[in-house]
Structure formats: structure tokens, C-alpha cells
């Protein structure tokens, strides 16, 4: 009788072990080069979020939520942040938030250009797409194996895993968003003599922004999930609270970590989801809210003052 174990003739584990060992030894400069910017951005974010006073962070979060989403989301954000503080895991939550914001920055810096490249070249998309498929079907847990091998353990290797897991949706959505821009819009650009670069910046990218922000929302949620999982390879943050609670059979502590994670995740989701949502009066709240955000940073913006109110009675339709 043939047993399944009899067929185990390929020592794949040994091959991979040798292969990874070889890569870790010989390609070390490459991994250091990958690690360096991640480490830099992450440390900056951790420093900022840990040093900025609690009230200031709440104020900034509320302002962002209000300008980007709505007053309701802003209220929720305030409540969620205060709740996290009352649970006594504020510092850990800020570390997790650093992991996520770092992932957003790096994913945007890498993912959007790759997505643009994929949208403009079918060949590149043909190469990138199967890689994304593999990355997105791989369980987050499995990411940790090569990361530990190649980058070691700790918060920075954890961040590498977070970025790797969170980038694919943004690449996909950027590609999709640009490809979905109506042909007539693209032709309008071409017909007025746009170069390839002008076509991208003047027509395709602005019209793809809602879809790209939908991808950003997915990236944020994936980063959130991953920032918890990477506690298993020694990354700090709320994930570590849960892990410690489990390890010590301290259900209370694990639950506190879990509640904080849920609150943080809901807050981030609500804010970023509102960004990508079409509809509402006027149809394009996203662009207006982005513009509003820019304007709030530049109070002396000339456009804001030059634009007449929409209900100006002096305006009458020449069509009638």
C-alpha cells in the first residue's frame, strides 16, 4: 500500500533553506537597501506620533476626519481615540498607527508608480499581475517566513512585511483607475495635442483619483491587519499586547488590545472610505474635499475667494 509519506522524496525544505541562506548571505546589501528607507520613515513616524501630545493628535485626527469625511466621522474619531487612551494602550496604539502611516507613505510611493506603469504597458501588467495574484492569495501569516529569513526580527522587519502585504491593492486599483478613464476623455486629450506625460497628468491621473483612493482604503485595512500579525516576529504595537495577553493567558489584556485595534481600524476605514465614495450632492465630494483640505492649509487661496456662490441670482441660463 502506497503511503503519501513515501512520496516525500524531494527535500524542498532543505533546498529553500539553502537558497534563502545563500540569498541572505550574498544579497545582504540589497536587503539593507530595502530596509533603510523603511526604517527611516518608520522611525520618523514613531518619533512623531509618540512625541506629539495626546490632545494635539486627537485634534489633528478630528480635523482630518472632518475635512476629508464628515462631522460624524470626526466625532467618532475623537471618541475612539479617547477610548483607546482610557484603555491604557495609547503608546502601543501610536506605534501601530506609525506602522500603518509608514505603510501608506511607502505603498503610495511605490504602488502608484507601478500601477501607472502597468496601466500604460500591457507587457508590464502581464508580469506584475501574476505576482500580485500570488501576493494577495498568500495568507498574511506566510509572509512572515521569508521576512524573518531576509530581514530578521523586530519592528522594522515587521514593517517590511506590512508594506509587502499592503501594496498590491493600491497597484491594482491604480492600474484599474487609469484604464477605466473613458476613451473619449483620453481622445479629447490626444485631439488637443497632449504628450504622453500631459495625458497622464492632465487627464488620466486626475480622473483615476477616486479609484486610486479606493485602493488606498484597501491598503490601509490590509496594513492594519498585517500590523497586528507582525507582532509574531517581534514588532511592537497593539498586536504585541494581544500576543502577550494570549501568551500569559491574560484574557483581559488580550481583549483590551483587541478593542483598541477594532477602534483604530474603524476610524481609519471610515476616513479613507469616505474619500473614495462617489455620490452626494454635486457628485464629486472626494475632489472637493481634497481641494478643501488643500485650501485649509492655504487660507489665502485665490480660487476660494474668486469663486462666486453657486446660488448667485445674477446667473441665468442662456439656454432658456
Amino acid at each position: 500500500m502506497l503511503d503519501a509519506n513515501d512520496l516525500n522524496v524531494f527535500p524542498v525544505d532543505a533546498w529553500i533553506q539553502d537558497g534563502v541562506a545563500w540569498i541572505a548571505l550574498n544579497l545582504r546589501p540589497l536587503f539593507l537597501a530595502i530596509k533603510w528607507p523603511v526604517e527611516y520613515v518608520l522611525n520618523l513616524n514613531i518619533f512623531l506620533l509618540q512625541e506629539i501630545p495626546f490632545l494635539a493628535i486627537v485634534a489633528v485626527a478630528v480635523l482630518l476626519a472632518w475635512r476629508l469625511a464628515s462631522l460624524g466621522v470626526a466625532c467618532f474619531s475623537a471618541v475612539a481615540l479617547v477610548a483607546i487612551a482610557t484603555l491604557g494602550v495609547w503608546s502601543e496604539a501610536m506605534t501601530t498607527l506609525s506602522l500603518i502611516t509608514t505603510a501608506i507613505v511607502i505603498c503610495a510611493a511605490i504602488g502608484i508608480p507601478i500601477g501607472i506603469g502597468c496601466a500604460r504597458s500591457d507587457r508590464m501588467w502581464g508580469v506584475v499581475r501574476p505576482i500580485l495574484d500570488i501576493m494577495q492569495t498568500t495568507p498574511t501569516f506566510v509572509y512572515l517566513v521569508p521576512v524573518v529569513m531576509l530581514f530578521g526580527v523586530g519592528t522594522v522587519p515587521g514593517e517590511v512585511a506590512v508594506v509587502t502585504a499592503a501594496a498590491p491593492p493600491l497597484i491594482r486599483f491604480t492600474n484599474l483607475g487609469i484604464r477605466m478613464v473613458e476613451t473619449e476623455m483620453v481622445e479629447a486629450g490626444l485631439a488637443f495635442g497632449a504628450t504622453k506625460r500631459q495625458l497622464l497628468w492632465e487627464v488620466q491621473l486626475p480622473l483615476a483619483v477616486p479609484t486610486i483612493l479606493g485602493g488606498l482604503n484597501q491598503t490601509v485595512l490590509t496594513a492594519m491587519v498585517m500590523s497586528v500579525v507582525v507582532a509574531m516576529i517581534g514588532a511592537e504595537g497593539l498586536g504585541l499586547v494581544v500576543l502577550q495577553g494570549l501568551g500569559r493567558l491574560d484574557v483581559g489584556r488580550a481583549a483590551v488590545g483587541g478593542i483598541a485595534i477594532v477602534l483604530l481600524a474603524m476610524m481609519l476605514d471610515r476616513i479613507t472610505q469616505k474619500l473614495a465614495q462617489p455620490g452626494g450632492p454635486g457628485g464629486r465630494p472626494l475632489l472637493r474635499s481634497l481641494r478643501a483640505l488643500v485650501r485649509s492649509g492655504r487660507p489665502a487661496d485665490d480660487k476660494a475667494t474668486a469663486r462666486p456662490p453657486a446660488s448667485n441670482p445674477a446667473i441665468s441660463s442662456p439656454d432658456q
Partner: peptide, 30 residues
């Protein structure tokens, strides 16, 4: 395309994220 031949489209093909004036000056911006 910039200086000699311009085009008007069946479904207008106006950029929704730009104002009427910005749409009008589109060709000149390019």
C-alpha cells in the same frame, strides 16, 4: 493637433474635475 485642427466630441468629453473655464483653456494649457 494643437494649432491647426481641433475637435468637438459627441458626448462633450469635458473633464469633470475642471471648471468650465479650465476646460475651455485645456488646449492652451497643453
Amino acid at each position: 493637433r494643437r494649432k491647426r485642427i481641433s475637435m468637438v466630441f459627441q458626448h462633450f468629453a469635458l473633464l469633470p474635475n475642471r471648471t468650465v473655464a479650465e476646460n475651455t483653456e485645456f488646449g492652451l494649457k497643453l
